[in-house]
Design a protein around this nucleic acid. Sequence first.
DNA 1: AAATTATATGCAACTCAGTTGCATATAATT
DNA 2: AATTATATGCAACTGAGTTGCATATAATTT
Lengths: 139, 139
Amino acid sequence: MENVDSLKKILGSHKLRITDCRLHVIQLFLTERKALSQGDLENQLNQYDRVTLYRTLNSFLDSGIIHKIPNSEGVATYGLCHETCSPNQHDHNHIHFKCNSCGQIQCLDDKSVPNVMVPEGYHIEAVNMIVDGVCAKCA
Amino acid sequence: MENVDSLKKILGSHKLRITDCRLHVIQLFLTERKALSQGDLENQLNQYDRVTLYRTLNSFLDSGIIHKIPNSEGVATYGLCHETCSPNQHDHNHIHFKCNSCGQIQCLDDKSVPNVMVPEGYHIEAVNMIVDGVCAKCA
DNA sequence: AAATTATATGCAACTCAGTTGCATATAATT
DNA sequence: AATTATATGCAACTGAGTTGCATATAATTT
C-alpha cells in the first residue's frame, strides 16, 4: 500500500490538483506495475465516470506523469513515467515487453535500449522498443 | 510505374484474387515507400469505397502482404512486408522511423535491430523498434 | 474563516476509426 | 457457359475517445 503523502507529492510536483480520483489512478499504476488502459482503470475503479478517467489519463500525459506506449491494438495503453520526465521532455528509452500469452505490457526500465543505427542525415530524438514474446510468469 | 504483372504476382503468391482496387493499393505502397493508413489510401484512391479499403488492408494483413506498425496516434498504419513474410510468420525485425516534422513513418529495412536484453525467463518472439526523430528530408 | 477562483467531475451527446450485414458484382474455376 | 467463391458498395453499427455544460471541489485570496 503506497503512502498517500508520496502520491500527493507526485501530483504536487507536476502542478496538478490533488483529487481522490487522481490518487487512485496513480495508486493503480504503482501497484499493478504494468501498462494500463482506460478500460483497465474503468474495470478497477468503478466509482469514477469513464470520461473522468480519460481526462485523468490525459492530464497525467500532459504533465509528464505517464507516457503512451506504441501498440497495434486500437486501444491506448499508458505506462508510468520516471521522475525525470517533464511535459515537454519525456525520457523513455526503455523496452516495452508485450506478453503474447497474458497480454500484459510491461516497461522494462532496468534494461536499456541498445544503440541504434539510422541512415545518414536522420536525427534520432527518441527510441521506443517493443518486444513481443512470453513473459517470465507465462513461460 | 510498377509493372502490373509483378503486382499481380504478389497477389497470386498470397492466394488473393486480382482486383483493380488491390492492384492500386499495392501500387501505392510501392510508390510511396512509407507507412500508409486507411485515410492515406482513401485520400489518394477516391474511386474506392472506404469500407473496401479497410477490407483490402485487412486482407493484405491477413495474407502477409503488409504489417501493422505500432504507434500512439489512434490511427492504424501499415507497411509493406518482405516476400519472406507469411500469414503466420511475420519477419519484421526492422526499424520504423517516425519523423516528427513531416509525420511520415518509414520502414528502415536496411538497418537491422540491435540485439536486445530482457530479464531472465522472458522469451523474445519479435522486436519492434520505433525511432522518433527528424528524417533526412526535413533535417 | 469566508469568499473567490480555477479546475475536476458527471452526464449527455458527439466524432471518428473500424466493423458488420446484405445484395450485387465479379474473378476464378468447372 | 455455368457455377462458385469472394470482392465491392451502401447503410448501419460499435466502441474508443472527445466535447459541452452545469455543478462540485481544491486551492488561493481576502
